[in-house]
Amino acid sequence: MIEIVGLTKKYGSFYALQDLNLTIEEGTVFGFVGANGAGKSTTFSILATLLQPTAGDAFIDGMSVTKNAHEVRKQIGYMPDFFGVYDQLKANEYLDFYGASYGLTPKEREALIPKLLELVNLEHKRYDYVDLLSRGMKQRLCLARSLIHDPKILILDEPASGLDPRARVEMRDILKELKSMGKTILISSHILPELAEMCDSIGVIDAGKLIAQGSVHEIQAHLQSEKVLKVKLAGPAKEAMAFFENDPLVSKLVEKPEKQSIEFLYRGTEEDQIRLLRQAMERSLPILSFAEEETDLEDVFMAITKGVEVK
């Protein structure tokens, strides 16, 4: 559905994008994550036909964004990170204006607008002025605007930026609903945990380059050469500490007396973990639980973008 081939954008000697290659399948939600200035908005502006690349091309449903811009615009709904609204219009008038801009008849707009407002949970604000809406409501109204011509693809640049936790949950639920309707959604954020629950897969961009791609779990597993294992004990830790310390795959063993547990880094495979636990049980160590601790997603993001090892 979306294919990006060798996409490059250069300003003088500065590369905003460098040879970006990416394929996004139809009906999926793809998250584009990167720090501010990494190249997310540049990529989205090119996909939305608002910016010409220096080199390469991108294809929306088989159409080039550089050669078939007019046709591409019919297939996409674009929500930029910063957008203007017409404050003196009511919510329904705002959507009516954009519906007319897309060539919808008055009868079509009359039937469609209530459905869009219901979809984004704004039907009760239909007759409220836009400038009186909260930031989260304005975000959802702009999402409704991007849907007014029923596009196949949604390109949403930082749609949850500046929203409170409740508004973020509402936005996430709306995106799930849009996915169930068969929309292909490309969404960006500089916060990895924000995208983790919404996306089928993610791509991490840094300094204009795509440096990781896959599901959150795949990226996390690829980065972690060492796993954090936590062992909770029902008795003294001295014997257990000595046992785990002797394993060549264990490092940085730490006792946590207040939690009656020990933690350590482990370089082995899952089969190695099974062997280690079996041997510990054969020694009759007082183990209540033996588990791998999940790495914080923010740590994963920092590891990807800074090239450091996740611990």
Rank of each mutant, 00 (worst) to 15 (best):
S13F: 11
L7Q: 04
V33G: 00
L17A: 02
G136Y: 07
E3L: 05
I2D: 01
L116M: 02
S134I: 06
Y102V: 06
D128Y: 09
M63C: 11
G27K: 13
G37H: 08
G12P: 15
L116S: 05
N68M: 13
T42K: 07
Y129R: 11
I60Q: 00
S41L: 04
R135L: 11
F82R: 09
S64P: 12
R135A: 04
G12W: 12
N68C: 12
G34C: 02
T28N: 08
Q88M: 02
L7P: 04
A111H: 13
V85I: 00
L141G: 01
F97W: 14
G136A: 05
N121Q: 12
L141V: 04
G39R: 09
I2Y: 03
T42W: 08
F32Y: 15
T105D: 03
V130G: 04
R140Y: 13
A16H: 03
E3T: 13
Y98S: 06
D81R: 09
Y94P: 04
V33D: 01
L17N: 03
K10S: 07
P106M: 06
A35L: 14
L51N: 10
A91F: 08
P114G: 01
M63K: 14
G37D: 03
E71P: 11
P80F: 08
A100F: 09
H124G: 07
M79Q: 15
G31I: 05
E108G: 03
I46N: 00
P106A: 05
M79K: 09
N92E: 11
G56E: 11
N121L: 08
G56W: 15
K107Y: 11
I4K: 02
K67Y: 07
T43Q: 04
D61N: 15
R140E: 06
L119W: 10
D131F: 14
E71V: 08
V85E: 03
I46P: 06
G31E: 02
Q88G: 10
G136N: 08
E25S: 14
D19L: 08
A111I: 07
L50P: 13
I24K: 02
L132Q: 09
Y86I: 03
Y127S: 11
L112Q: 01
V120W: 00
D57N: 15
M137K: 06
D128L: 10
G84W: 06
D96V: 06
T49P: 12
K74W: 10
G56H: 14
A38H: 10
G62N: 13
L117W: 05
A91V: 15
L141M: 06
L50H: 13
E110S: 10
S64H: 13
H70E: 14
K107S: 11
L122C: 03
F97A: 05
G84V: 09
S64A: 15
L122V: 07
A58S: 15
G6I: 08
D87F: 05
G27W: 09
S13T: 14
M137G: 00
L51G: 10
A91H: 07
V120A: 01
E26Q: 12
L116I: 04
A35R: 15
E93M: 10
F82K: 14
L22N: 07
D19H: 10
S101G: 04
G77V: 12
I4D: 00
Y129K: 12
S13A: 12
K115V: 05
H70Q: 14
Y78A: 00
I60M: 06
K115H: 07
G99K: 01
L116P: 02
S134Y: 07
V72P: 01
I24R: 01
M63I: 15
A38N: 06
A91R: 09
L17C: 02
